[in-house]
Simulated scan of single mutants.
Amino acid sequence: MAADRTRRHLVIFARQPRLGVGKRRLAAEVGDLAALRFGRYALERLWRELGADPRWTLWVATSPDRPTRWVRRGRPLPQGPGGLGAKLRRVTDVLPAGPVVIIGADTPGVTRTDVARAFAALGPKAAVLGPAADGGYWLIGLRRRPREPRPFDGIRWSSDQTLQDTIDALGDTPYARLQMREDVDDGAALQRALTPRRLR
């Protein structure tokens, strides 16, 4: 089991939860304080659910790169400069050998079962995608064998074409799909994600 953990890497892409930083579209609808509370709740939920599983090593790709004292579980890993594609490529390239699964911190409902299914798919497939309701994806995983693509170039990020662009970037590379989920980018999605729970 320990050997499996060293070969599998789960990365949460996360921005430090600070007032007025990040989730600007959400904050515009629900206010900075509610957006901050959601950010903290989402990270805590993911850390509790995914942080202690012995089947993988947890990393937190941080923005900004420093400080990292707010990372409560997992190993901090800087996202570095550039757009999202550059950050995803950088993190994917610097991790130790083994398959990698990446999720964002704005889909707090991700479970251990979701992640385990993603890693299982990376046995026979080179990539795995978790489609999001808005046309993006809530999860991407790569087997990372030589000559297998890193599908992060030429992507229209944060659009309803992000998933399709990523599939196009994979070309003929075999990939698997997980179930569709919704990431939290606006007030309606926040309400659905928290019902019947309320932020306190």
Results as ranks from 00 to 15, higher is better:
G135Y: 03
A118W: 10
T92L: 12
K125H: 15
G20I: 04
Y137R: 04
A61N: 09
P149T: 08
A120S: 05
Y175A: 03
P54H: 09
T62N: 11
L50G: 13
L33V: 15
V110T: 15
P54Q: 10
R48Q: 14
A118Y: 08
V110S: 14
L36K: 06
R112P: 00
G31M: 01
A42V: 05
G187R: 09
D32T: 03
G135A: 04
R200T: 12
Q179A: 15
W157M: 11
Q164D: 09
G171D: 13
G123V: 02
A27Q: 08
G83L: 11
A3L: 00
R69H: 12
D65A: 11
D106N: 05
A169Y: 03
R143I: 00
G171V: 13
R69I: 00
D168M: 10
Q16L: 01
T166I: 05
A52V: 00
R112C: 02
G74Y: 09
W59H: 07
L129W: 08
P81M: 00
R200H: 09
G74R: 11
F13N: 01
L142A: 05
V11L: 11
D168W: 10
L84A: 14
L26A: 00
S159I: 07
D160W: 13
R15T: 14
G85A: 03
E44A: 15
V94P: 02
G74C: 10
F13C: 01
R156H: 15
R143L: 01
R69N: 03
S158K: 10
R15L: 14
F119H: 11
R24H: 05
P131G: 05
T195Y: 15
I155D: 14
L95F: 08
V21R: 05
Q79I: 04
L50P: 13
V110N: 13
G39I: 02
L95P: 12
R192N: 13
A132L: 09
F13H: 01
D93A: 15
I103S: 05
L10N: 06
R150D: 05
G39R: 07
R5V: 04
D134F: 09
T57C: 01
V100I: 01
T68C: 00
R40H: 12
L84T: 11
R90Q: 12
V71T: 08
G51I: 10
R177S: 03
F119P: 11
L46E: 06
V60N: 03
R147K: 12
V71M: 06
Y41T: 01
P196N: 06
I102H: 04
A126I: 03
G109Y: 04
G20T: 07
G109S: 07
R40T: 15
R40E: 15
L122M: 12
L46P: 07
I167F: 02
I12G: 01
G123D: 07
L19E: 12
I102Y: 02
P76K: 12
A52N: 04
R145S: 01
R72K: 04
R69V: 00
D160R: 15
V100H: 02
A126W: 13
G20P: 10
